[in-house]
Simulated assay, not measured.
Amino acid sequence: MAGSSSACNPDSAPILWLCRGGEPSVPAPPNWLTGHEHTTLSGLTGPRRHEFLLSRWLIRQALSAASQLPVEACRPVDGRPVRSAAPEGWRLSLSHSQGTAACAISHGFPIGVDIEPLQRRPQWQAIVKRWFSPREQSWLLAENDVFSFLKVWTLKEAWLKATGRGIAGNLQTLEVLPEFELVGDQDEPGWHASIVELPDCLATLVWHQATAGEPDVVIADPPGPEFRLDSCQRQPDGATPILRQTIQPRES
């Protein structure tokens, strides 16, 4: 499922970069950080500091590979990194989970990513009963499978990121029905979802594109302790696709 990740036109498929962060480190601020990123980093310590550096390093690697610009010329907008500042025109979405970082990028169309660890959630049924629709509750509780719950949860999280909304009051705007039929509250067609499985987590993409190709997945070796931009190496494809689905508009 991995590919060259070099397309940069509006019809190109979304691209997902993943990186397991390696040993946590707290290095001096790299010289490639923007002023805003440097200020943000100064207020972080320990794992949060490492997570921030890893995600900003991964954004630049993804943008460089997709646009074919030098990695040092690439950066996200200041603040919440939902789009690129250089080169312009790219949408971004980030997710983190227990030392793994994900960066999804697209050329101009909405995109969202969520990753979740593959570990048992003993209270997942309570979440379903409290926040999911009656139809979702019916099949999920009857199936009683935490893996199905994790797939549903990542779909909802990625959907909310792609549509620009928070969790509060919005988890039912995407309804996941039996056999993973997906129904969303957006009227326009062209919404898509994809889930891949890694050895320790699920990674889910949701995006909006009229003609959607198969997402490109790149797994990067972790950067060295100094977070040098020229240190990126790619691993052999370790992501297994387990779902590819179109999200249907909800009937009036």
Rank of each mutant, 00 (worst) to 15 (best):
S138V: 04
A168W: 07
D145L: 02
P236N: 02
T173F: 13
N31I: 06
R83G: 07
R56S: 06
R120T: 14
E251F: 01
R48W: 00
I115K: 00
L198D: 08
I167L: 15
H107M: 14
I111R: 00
W90K: 01
A86I: 00
A126T: 11
L202Y: 15
A102D: 08
S55N: 06
E88M: 06
W90Q: 04
S93N: 04
S67C: 08
R48F: 01
A239W: 10
G184F: 12
Q98I: 00
Q209P: 11
E116P: 07
S5W: 06
L140T: 10
P110T: 03
N144H: 14
S93V: 05
I59H: 08
I167Q: 03
A101F: 07
V206Q: 09
L63E: 12
L160S: 07
G89H: 06
V196H: 10
W57M: 10
S95Y: 04
V183I: 15
L16G: 01
P225M: 01
S231G: 14
K156I: 03
L16Q: 06
D78T: 12
T100W: 03
V113F: 01
L94D: 05
D78Y: 01
E181Y: 03
S93W: 09
R120E: 13
V128M: 05
G99S: 11
C201V: 05
A86F: 06
A86Y: 00
A193M: 11
W153N: 07
L94R: 02
D230H: 02
G190P: 10
L229W: 00
E181H: 10
T240N: 09
H107I: 07
F52V: 00
S42R: 08
H36F: 11
E179N: 14
Q125S: 13
L41P: 12
W131N: 08
W159P: 06
I195N: 03
W159E: 11
H38L: 11
G169H: 07
E37G: 07
R228E: 09
D230I: 02
S67K: 01
W124Q: 05
P189N: 03
G184C: 05
S55C: 09
F132Y: 15
A102S: 10
E116F: 05
R49C: 05
I247F: 10
P222V: 07
L18Q: 05
T154W: 11
Q235K: 13
S148K: 12
P30L: 08
N170F: 12
A7L: 12
G35C: 10
K156H: 09
A126D: 13
R130N: 10
N144W: 09
R80D: 04
R80Q: 14
Q186V: 12
N170L: 14
D221V: 02
F52Y: 14
P215C: 03
E116I: 02
P47I: 05
S95M: 06
P14Y: 00
S93I: 01
H96W: 04
Q235D: 05
W159S: 03
L16Y: 04
R80L: 06
S133T: 14
L243P: 02
T240V: 14
S12H: 14
L63R: 05
D145Y: 07
E175P: 06
